[in-house]
Computed example of a mutant assay.
Amino acid sequence: MFRGSIVALITPMHADGEIDDASLQRLVDFHVAEGTTAIVSVGTTGESATLDEDEHCDVIRRTVEFAAGRIPVIAGTGANSTREAISLTRRAREAGAVAALLVTPYYNKPTQEGLYLHYKAVAEAVDIPQILYNVPSRTACDMLPETVARLAGIDNIIGLKEATGDLSRVTRLRADCGPGFALYSGDDATAREFMRLGGDGVISVTSNLAPRSMQAMCEAALAGDRERAESIDATLEGLHRDLFVQSNPIPVKWGVAELGLCSRGIRLPLTWLTQEHQACVRQAMSQAGLL
Rank of each mutant, 00 (worst) to 15 (best):
R138S: 11
V64F: 11
H56S: 04
F2E: 05
Q275M: 07
T50C: 06
E84Y: 00
C280G: 00
S23V: 02
A97S: 09
F194I: 01
T171Q: 14
F66P: 11
Q278H: 06
V170R: 03
I131S: 05
A33D: 15
T111K: 05
A67L: 02
A288P: 00
A92R: 06
T82A: 12
G224R: 06
E227R: 15
A229T: 05
I232T: 03
L261K: 13
L243N: 04
D242N: 14
A125Q: 06
I71V: 13
L167K: 08
D29P: 03
G178C: 12
A100Q: 06
M195N: 12
I158T: 12
R192S: 12
T206M: 11
L115Q: 10
A234K: 10
I266R: 02
I250T: 15
E162N: 09
S168R: 15
A234R: 14
R172N: 00
H14I: 01
E53D: 15
E146R: 09
K253E: 03
S213Q: 14
I71E: 10
E276A: 15
R169D: 09
R226Q: 12
D58W: 05
M217I: 07
I266Q: 03
G198V: 11
D225I: 04
A221K: 01
A85N: 04
A100Y: 12
A75N: 03
G114F: 05
A210G: 03
T171G: 04
L27V: 02
I157H: 04
D200F: 09
K253G: 01
F181N: 05
L209F: 04
N134C: 06
N248G: 06
H118P: 03
L236R: 01
E47C: 09
A229R: 10
G224F: 07
R91S: 02
S5H: 05
A182D: 09
V73C: 05
V252G: 07
C141K: 00
A125G: 11
S81L: 12
A216D: 10
V98Y: 02
L259R: 15
L273W: 13
E230K: 13
G265Q: 05
A8I: 04
I131F: 14
E162F: 09
L259E: 13
W272T: 11
R267S: 05
P105L: 07
P249G: 08
A229Q: 08
R90F: 11
A123C: 12
V205M: 02
E193W: 10
T171E: 15
L51W: 06
L268T: 10
L222P: 06
A140D: 12
D187R: 10
D127F: 01
L9C: 14
V98A: 13
T36W: 08
L88P: 00
C280F: 00
A92Y: 08
M217Q: 07
A191Y: 08
L144P: 00
G238S: 04
Y106R: 06
P72W: 00
V148P: 06
H56W: 15
D155H: 12
T111R: 02
L88K: 11
G69L: 11
P251D: 04
Y116K: 07
P72F: 01
G159Y: 01
A234P: 00
A99I: 05
L9W: 03
R62L: 14
A99S: 13
A99L: 10
R70D: 01
D127E: 15
L273A: 03
G17L: 03
R174I: 12
M13D: 02
V122F: 11
V73T: 02
T190R: 02
T190G: 01
Y119K: 03
S213N: 04
V205L: 04
S204M: 03
A216Y: 01
V205D: 08
A234N: 08
